[in-house]
Write a protein that binds this DNA or RNA. Structure first.
Lengths: 225, 225
DNA sequence: AAACTGATTTAGACTACCCTAAATCTGATT
DNA sequence: AATCAGATTTAGGGTAGTCTAAATCAGTTT
């Protein structure tokens, strides 16, 4: 029951969780790309994860992989660690939102349940991390959230930024400079249907912004009107 | 130069540092016992550590091992991480002094220099951890300290507890209950030269205590008179 | 239905750690 | 000087991860 997973296994579970979020099975190539390893390495690990007791994944050769309930709990445990740590580093140790990811990635595998509980308590049991991503509960359920990317909006619509789904520090710093952070309100002015650029106007900012899909696919918003 | 060490290597360097503190070379058996591995495993690791670039240890077969200057710096880096973490967990997250060691043992290998600096800053650059052990400086020098074990004291001498050199949670809880913690003053009443028991009287405590060497060898004091 | 393409798996090798069992060395004792 | 005990190393094997190169599969196109 209380299997101790290796750090590598935990990273694989996290990646499978992220890539099968839509319900579909995660495939070898995408996992390899996300984890920065060769596809053959993924195949090897999947074989191991499929035969643990209890099994953590369902793996059908050539047809991708999904998490079992036990595997999903293991993944959510790590995601909870990660996002609580990001929140702690951000709020308590003065990290910026582009710095938190890397540190949390290493710490998430080694903190105890006790440590998790203590920082959750110290933070007042936060429900979102500094990027606006929801933090899984202690019971390992993912809070429901609205997942509309900014790229889906069209001229005339108003929205509030909810979460920025990106880890790349350079991109995060760029978004910070643009003022595109959780809580910010905006209105869509124009849409170019050829390059899919979106022109938006951020509340309390004078000049409009033209954004490509590299950005608009990663900023998730809640539509207001 | 900036070799990335494995967690296991770091644990070996820490152990070699601790066991060769007296200047003598550390031997295979003691390392194996301290690290909880078989002696043959130690031999294998020592061969690897001796041929890194730069070399971290000086290893002569059958004659023990010492750290090179580079190895000592690497060891002190981990000790600094460990003791800063213990201090942080203790002061900021409400851990007790018997709980800090285990958590710090896992975190010490994964925190960044940035994290180290931030918690050192947040703590006001402490010089001792919750057990009274000195924290290596940022420049990786070990602050000098008086290392007289309580067991060396004889009747009539007065002393102040400086550090408690123990990781075992049960022992630490016991010492806490006895009131034998850093800063506490005491007087030696009697010494039994057969079983080496020491009878002491702790300041502000009514009843005297009789302590065996399991304790008196681990409590280090500064003699006052 | 055959062929092609891209994704995937297999095969085989490497590193870093661990182990046990057997051999060997060192230093003390006779 | 030979022996002996204990410490240490060697030999050989196991696991978990990584890789590259070669083979195979699945789905589309012809």
């Amino acid at each position: 029951m209380k299997n101790t997973l290796t750090h590598a296994s935990e990273d694989y579970l996290k990646a499978i969780y992220a890539l099968s979020a839509n319900g579909a099975a995660a495939n070898t190539t995408a996992l390899a790309a996300r984890l920065g390893v060769a596809p053959a390495s993924v195949t090897g690990m999947l074989k191991r994860l499929a035969v643990t007791q209890p099994p953590l994944i369902v793996y059908r050769k050539h047809h991708g992989v999904t998490l079992t309930p036990a595997g999903e709990r293991a993944a959510l445990e790590i995601v909870r660690h990660h996002r609580l740590l990001e929140t702690y580093l951000y709020r308590t140790l003065g990290y910026t939102w582009d710095e938190v990811h890397e540190e949390a990635c290493r710490l998430e595998h080694v903190i105890s349940e006790d440590f998790e509980e203590r920082i959750a308590e110290a933070l007042g049991h936060p429900v979102r991390d500094p990027h606006g991503e929801p933090i899984p509960t202690r019971e390992l359920t993912m809070p429901p959230f609205e997942a509309v990317p900014l790229s889906k909006l069209r001229p005339g619509q108003r929205a509030v930024v909810q979460r920025v789904h990106a880890d790349d520090p350079a991109l995060l710093r760029h978004l910070q400079r643009l003022g595109l952070t959780p809580g910010v309100g905006l209105t869509v002015d124009a849409y170019d249907e050829f390059d899919h650029n979106l022109q938006i106007k951020i509340d309390a900012q004078a000049d409009p912004l033209v954004l490509g899909t590299a950005i608009t696919d990663k900023v998730f918003i809640e539509v207001i009107a």
